[in-house]
Design a protein around this nucleic acid. Structure first.
Lengths: 229, 229
DNA sequence: GATCTGATATTGGTCAACCAATTGCGAGGA
DNA sequence: TCCTCGCAATTGGTTGACCAATATCAGATC
């Protein structure tokens, strides 16, 4: 997983290649030297160079084709491709939480309107399991399940998918920045009462209350997260 | 952009590795055999195996750590992949509009808070161009641009990405169900006034008003869409 | 009993060499 | 003139080997 700390120690070959492209001011569409020539410029072997090229191709910075060569692509569309990996590289924890704060209450509101009895039961199950969790990883698994169950309760596969993507970014960004003082979540953990309120609102089919409860929950999680940093 | 459709040119080593994991029914969290052992099972060399492992790690299927080994990720399938193509197959127009109704107002609210002067200018430009559009396709392009500019004004790449995905599904689902009676959008087109209200709210930094204006806009688009069906 | 240390297992990274697949182009022929 | 064929250039992929970084655990030491 990509944490923000691990993002720093990047591949030196990738950096060298980036620098080479930037330093020579290759215009979009220009062709880079052949691999066997580049290894001379960058003082790396071809395996290393090719791995760096793989990275840059995945990022959309360059474009390769057998027999033709390697070309730099227009830099603009490389950022906007909706590639989650790229998002993880660029997002800050604050923005990630703001996104959660924008999206998840809306999903909770939809869930309150559309939840089936089974979906509500699944939410309750995850909520109760989170309370009984005997370790932080176990708690986190069930917290994940709780939020995911709410998204599924919206009975809208698009919302579920969008939530999953948001969640994937969340996991990749902020997980190990949290500092824990206990082995396991205390029974008085703030989130439990908030989970209860969210669940109660959904079960009561109160969309506005579910929206508000989720907003407050994520706000509280966010506040705790940034206080500890 | 539904990138998942073009997955035909696959790496045979990746497929072999996927099959190995699936065939032996590794549970989430289980540890895979060491690389030097796996190469025997899969009949590939370590370099090839490692490239396949790279791919699966990037997809979130596995999780690796030096000295510990390679583990099957707990969210192995379908969750991380964000396969929009599957969503398009299953989503109904009603659910798609409900998703827009849940997400886009929240993004508009964020935009009102975080929009830079440049971002606001871009929104205005797209809005005005939509009004002057002389054909429905031109209008749609600028309407797209308008909504996208709002997402970008949130100054949050995660929200932009989520919006893009939502928008990709929207384009794939509901476009050809619309019936038009005119060659071009009439100047009195309902959306224009709604666009104006959204823009005004964002420019005034009124988050709640932006949220409400966007909600009403999408609600009105939705009503028109389903009345015509 | 607690703590440090070293051996061992495992993934990470790199290297030089080789062959395969694709493209572009020019030579040569119809 | 136009077409075909073959060659050279280029990236794609694989191989076996080597060393580095990290984690685990048993055993020695205090």
């Amino acid at each position: 997983m990509l944490t923000r700390l691990e993002t720093k120690d990047r591949n030196p070959a990738v950096d060298a290649l980036r620098e080479f492209i930037a330093g020579r001011e290759y215009a979009p569409g220009d062709r880079l030297p052949p691999e066997r020539e580049l290894i001379g410029h960058l003082k790396v072997t071809r395996t290393t160079l090719r791995k760096a090229l793989d990275t840059l191709e995945r990022e959309g910075v360059i474009w390769r084709h057998v027999g033709k060569g390697t070309f730099v692509s227009s830099k603009n569309d490389s950022l906007e491709t909706g590639d989650l990996a790229a998002v993880v590289q660029q997002i800050t924890p604050v923005r990630m939480m703001r996104a959660r704060l924008a999206i998840e209450p809306a999903i909770a509101g939809e869930a309150a309107i559309n939840a089936s009895r089974e979906a509500i039961a699944r939410i309750k199950k995850a909520k109760d399991r989170a309370i009984d969790a005997e370790s932080w990883p176990e708690y986190e698994t069930n917290d994940d399940l709780f939020h995911h169950a709410i998204a599924e309760a919206s009975d809208n596969i698009l919302l579920v998918t969008l939530f999953d993507q948001l969640n994937a970014v969340r996991r990749a960004v902020a997980l190990n920045t949290v500092i824990r003082y206990d082995d396991r979540p205390p029974r008085t953990h703030t989130s439990f009462a908030e989970h209860d309120r969210i669940y109660a609102a959904i079960e009561a089919r109160d969309s506005k209350a579910a929206y508000e409860a989720m907003r407050q929950h994520i706000g509280s999680v966010s506040a705790r997260l940034f206080r500890d940093m």
